[in-house]
């Protein structure tokens, strides 16, 4: 999208597609509010999908046991009638209030969405790559050590060291190998968490002498002025060696960081957004916060509490958008108008 193209229009932008952001689509949808959701991850589900997709949750009412991914799938099914629009792989960079009280939400790719209300369901913050426990690595970050590949061209002709054994490590090994001067994949053990097909492709390249695979761990980096020249490696036999490299791509999983939310002019308390328990409103009229990101007396960081917050927030948001419209309280069981919205 270019600078001057007009922004996408919607009723509500939800920052974060974790379980609470997803359920908010349902509650807002019952009140005829259309939602766009933005998440830095490449799929919905937040912590449930990223941190514990296969682990059971035992305290979702009426689900004696459900996995993190199972819960996410059910929520996606439940909100499908409301046609939410998802923007994945996007970080919400800015939220700016307009003169008429509406908001322009801007992503890190400079896409703009114009919304009447913003709901922050950002959980523990946005998922970002974990910094590997290598002493002194900070000095090289964004110059010769990268945690993601934004532009492949920056890696052309380089001696690349990729560290890790998951899908990101394997995918980038395969994508960068053709344009690199050399590629070394370093992993702690000869077992990979990645798709078997990628692992086979990588092993074929190694056999043909087109890249190398080393087993071991990085213990340090050498270089000057942010430019790495080699990495110190401890092999599994305990030997210390070095690998010459001019680019390092470590993949050590994701961790949650508050990120740009801190710059949106909201009151924060220890990286959480204080809200009231009637509307779940923040210090900025028209911006609400639900789920793990908010705080209030008695707050419990539970999914079920987030669901409750979503319901109350939705009614408050509706009143904010249409102050003169009377909201009739209805049950999905018996209201024919709600059932029509649900398509049942």
């Amino acid at each position: 999208m270019t600078e001057n193209s007009s922004p996408v229009e919607t009723d509500v932008v939800i920052v974060g597609a974790g379980p609470v952001g997803l359920f908010a689509v349902f509650e807002l949808g019952l009140l005829d509010l259309k939602c766009h959701l933005i998440d830095i991850l490449d799929r919905a589900g937040g912590q449930c999908a990223e941190l514990y997709p296969e682990k059971p949750i035992y305290d979702i009412p009426a689900w004696p046991e459900i996995s993190g991914q199972g819960l996410t799938d059910r929520l996606m099914e439940q909100i499908a009638p409301f046609d939410p629009v998802f923007h994945f792989n996007r970080m919400v960079a800015a939220v700016e209030k307009q003169e008429d009280g509406s908001f322009i939400v801007t992503t890190d790719e400079d896409e703009k969405i114009h919304a009447k209300v913003v709901v922050i369901a950002a959980g523990g913050g946005s998922f970002q790559p974990k910094r590997p426990p290598v002493p002194g690595i900070e000095a090289y970050e964004d110059q010769s050590v990268f945690y993601s590949v934004r532009r492949m061209e920056e890696f052309r002709g380089h001696d690349i060291l990729i560290v890790g054994g998951g899908d990101s490590a394997l995918d980038w090994t395969l994508s960068l190998q053709p344009i690199a001067n050399s590629v070394t994949l370093l992993h702690r053990r000869d077992a990979f968490r990645a798709a078997p097909d990628s692992v086979n492709k990588m092993k074929a390249l190694v056999e043909n002498g087109e890249m190398s695979l080393q087993l071991g761990q990085v213990t340090g980096l050498n270089g000057d002025d942010g430019q790495v020249t080699s990495a110190n490696i401890k092999t599994n036999e305990g030997e210390l060696t070095q690998i010459a490299c001019t680019r390092v791509l470590p993949f050590f999983g994701l961790t949650m960081k508050l990120g740009p939310i801190a710059d949106w002019g909201l009151n924060l308390e220890e990286n959480l957004i204080p809200v009231d328990t009637e509307k779940f409103a923040t210090s900025e009229p028209g911006i609400y916060a639900i789920g793990d990101i908010n705080t209030y007396p008695g707050k419990l960081k539970l999914i079920l509490s987030g669901f409750h917050e979503a319901a109350l927030m939705a009614h408050a948001a509706k009143k904010h958008i249409a102050p003169d419209e009377r909201i009739v309280f209805q049950y999905t069981t018996s209201s024919t108008s709600l059932q029509k919205k649900l398509g049942v």
């Binding site: 590997p132 426990p133 890790g164 998951g166 992993h187 077992a191 968490r193 761990q217 050590f252 999983g253």
Partner: peptide
Amino acid sequence: EEDMLDFAYDV
């Protein structure tokens, strides 16, 4: 657990 250990320091 072995998968998670990949993210630990000096395994």
